[in-house]
């Protein structure tokens, strides 16, 4: 069976995040073509609404790639994105889409190798999640059914 095409959207901050993407080119290490990178000025410009929108438009996974804590050029230090990331993960969970489809990755500048490794692992993880989701969809009833809850 052919491996399904897993679409990943990466929001990379303009600074350390983007430097990792550039480093992949400089080092000559490639990443799968199904990984699309969107460059943003700072991860603090990304909110739960945008992250969820990516899923609405068919992304299988979203990676938020930014600076390590203490390195943020704007001094925001990920506080905002950590909160939005948590919110979006909780929503994905309630939607039954699994929260691990969203990751926040904070790397040192120019970590090209590390980025490629992480994104490849992410794809493997999502393949696994998608397979279990497909199984769940053919299952007529949701896993958490009320019959297992407290009864009157």
């Amino acid at each position: 069976m052919a491996t399904p095409y897993i679409e990943i959207l990466v929001f990379a901050c303009n600074w350390d995040g983007w430097s990792c993407i550039e480093a992949t080119a400089n080092l000559g290490v490639g990443y799968p073509a199904s990984v699309k990178v969107v460059r943003v000025s700072c991860l603090s410009r990304i909110h739960a609404g945008l992250i969820l929108k990516a899923f609405e438009f068919g992304a299988d996974g979203v990676m938020l790639l930014g600076c390590e804590s203490g390195r943020c050029l704007f001094g925001v230090n990920g506080e905002y994105i950590i909160n939005e990331h948590e919110k979006a993960r909780s929503i994905l969970k309630i939607l039954g889409m699994r929260q691990d489809r969203l990751v926040l990755v904070q790397l040192p500048a120019f970590s090209g190798q590390e980025f490629v490794m992480q994104v490849k692992n992410f794809i493997v993880e999502i393949e696994r999640l998608s397979a279990s989701r497909r199984a769940k969809i053919t299952d007529p009833e949701p896993a958490q059914d009320i019959a297992v809850l407290s009864q009157q």
Partner: peptide, 25 residues
């Protein structure tokens, strides 16, 4: 959209036939 359009996106994802929520936690 207010709130970054998140409510509408949630509604649209929920509308999918394939959606299996985990909403009783």
């Amino acid at each position: 959209y207010s709130h970054g359009g998140a409510p509408q996106t949630i509604m649209h994802i929920m509308a999918h036939r394939e959606t299996r929520q985990d909403r009783l936690n």
